[in-house]
């Protein structure tokens, strides 16, 4: 995902703002990292360039 998308990306549960942590970037794109919602203390992983914004109970489905 591209970092400039942060402005429209929100927590799927509480719609709160997310804080981005990038652990691997390529060509201005975040390949691995995470998105943290301070409001509900939930963390969403970014894997292979795709933010996993599934609610936690569905993540392993």
């Amino acid at each position: 995902m591209r970092p400039d998308l942060m402005e429209i990306l929100v927590c799927p549960l509480c719609k709160g703002d997310l804080e981005l942590t990038a652990t691997r970037e390529e060509d201005g794109e975040i390949i691995e990292g995470s998105l943290h919602c301070a409001a509900c203390n939930e963390t969403y992983p970014i894997e292979d360039g795709i933010p996993n914004m599934l609610p936690p109970d569905l993540r392993e489905a």
Binding site: P12, M53, P55
Partner: peptide, 17 residues
């Protein structure tokens, strides 16, 4: 184009976006 894993019942998108 940007893809994200998500549920259409719980969209990870800001209001009015």
């Amino acid at each position: 184009v940007e893809f994200r894993l998500g549920e259409i019942e719980h969209l990870p998108m800001a209001d009015a976006s």
